[in-house]
Design a protein around this nucleic acid. Structure first.
Lengths: 248, 248
DNA sequence: CGACGTGTTGATCTCTCTCAATTAGAGTGG
DNA sequence: CCACTCTAATTGAGAGAGATCAACACGTCG
């Protein structure tokens, strides 16, 4: 149960993340309080909670979500190792979102003042936080385009392509040509604004057409070009391209 | 055509915005290059453009949007005076969004390096930029909930309530109990992921029920409680509540 | 005065939702 | 080892919210 020192953070070994100076790493370390584990399905942050801690996702997947009073749920985006959690809770004047663990997860917990102190003591890390926040917004933008204007088939195809790249960029041990994919169809549905049943039917249709396969919690893209075409995605479409991203 | 000095920025007189120190204002001023005007409908930033300037919206309304190859358009959020424009363009590794002027607008133009320099030279302003970015993301989150999980009627009601508060908070001269509302129904439709026709029908239904009225480019909420109820909004639901927001 | 943008309304059509039922796998307890 | 239970995936059938098509009204503007 030994906690990782930030210097030895396994995430820093991934090519996705840019390297920090020893000084920056020490600063981040000084704000780390502890690690905390959540089981799959556990609520990390409750909707409406405004005094949540700051977290960094170290292991596992989670997601941000919002719900309506009758239980309808919208998943805002998925969180993967290296993602920063809890910036909005301290800022928002509109009701905040919840965060739920999708798999068993390990999080690094930072004291609440860290957000400000990082800005104050290191402009570079402060800038990185802005970068991460803006970058997460881009993901939500993309999802809003999907949910607002794409058909069910296009939405599913877009999600598969995007998550594949997000997951691949954080994968330490490449599992053949597939990536770990722990989502249930209900979660896919809630992320895309679709019903469970229609999500299933559309997913099967794409699978029968040979574009992808989901098996034993792994996602394989058999025809990424066709998927991107089906999704009307003509950009790079993935996170983790040429440029690196900050790690706090 | 005299350009405003940041010290005399009319926006600072609004109760919505928190006050900055003279030093901070001078710093912001030092990065201001000029003002620029756009006519209604003009493209401020093109989709995919990654070298755009930074702007602050001084007068008028604009919106951020994304489109698919066949022209389907999703409006991501509306921009009102005081909003900061262009942070994502410098950060995103996914294709960026466009920005279009909704009315005739005046923008303050900042040099591109300002984003980093503000962080470097003033942790407070750097923190404010993070705040603004996170706050904008909250708006997109809320819209994603609408588009993904609310019915057409709920979406329209939610949008009316939200825009009413956003507009009211920036209004200098209160126009009776209404606020300026320059949106066409097409733009409302594109913001909510609905068709123009269905938007019109739903809008009329709410209007006939006496919940609101749109007349001569002004929006009046006749029964805000009922609208919030119709929208399934139980939080404060508005931007610009008790706490002030930064102005860059 | 005609062209154009915006708003309005009616009539279909269809994509997606809801309801219902079945299968398969993983645990659990007797 | 075998019922029993629970969750997740799957498939069919019918219903409905919202899309599309088509007309028309109204104001502005060159």
């Amino acid at each position: 149960m030994a906690e990782v020192h930030c210097v030895d953070c396994p995430l820093r070994r991934l090519p996705l993340f840019m390297s920090n100076s020893a000084q920056e790493i020490a600063l981040v370390q000084s704000f780390k309080q502890r690690e905390i584990r959540f089981n799959a399905g556990a609520l990390v942050i409750q909707e409406g909670q405004t005094d949540a801690s700051l977290f960094t996702l170290l292991e596992g997947w989670a997601f941000r979500f919002k719900t309506l009073s009758d239980g309808r749920r919208q998943i805002l985006n998925f969180l993967l190792p290296g993602d920063f959690i809890g910036v909005q809770q301290k800022m928002a004047d509109v009701a905040a979102h919840g965060v739920m663990a999708l798999t068993d997860t390990v999080l690094c917990v930072f004291q609440r003042a860290a957000l400000w102190e990082l800005h104050r003591q290191s402009p570079t890390l402060g800038f990185n936080i802005t970068w991460l926040t803006a970058s997460e917004e881009s993901l939500v933008d993309e999802k809003l385009l999907s949910v607002g204007r794409r058909t069910a088939e296009e939405r599913i195809a877009a999600l598969l392509v995007q998550l594949f790249h997000q997951a691949a960029a954080r994968q330490t041990a490449p599992v053949a040509d597939g990536v770990a994919f722990p989502l249930t169809q209900q979660e896919i549905a809630d992320a895309l604004g679709l019903s469970l049943v229609h999500t299933n039917k559309t997913l099967r249709k794409l699978e029968r057409r040979g574009l992808h396969r989901i098996e034993n919690g792994c996602l394989y893209l058999h025809d990424e070009v066709a998927l991107k075409h089906a999704a009307d995605m003509y950009g790079p479409g993935g996170v983790g391209g040429p440029s690196n991203r900050p790690l706090i």
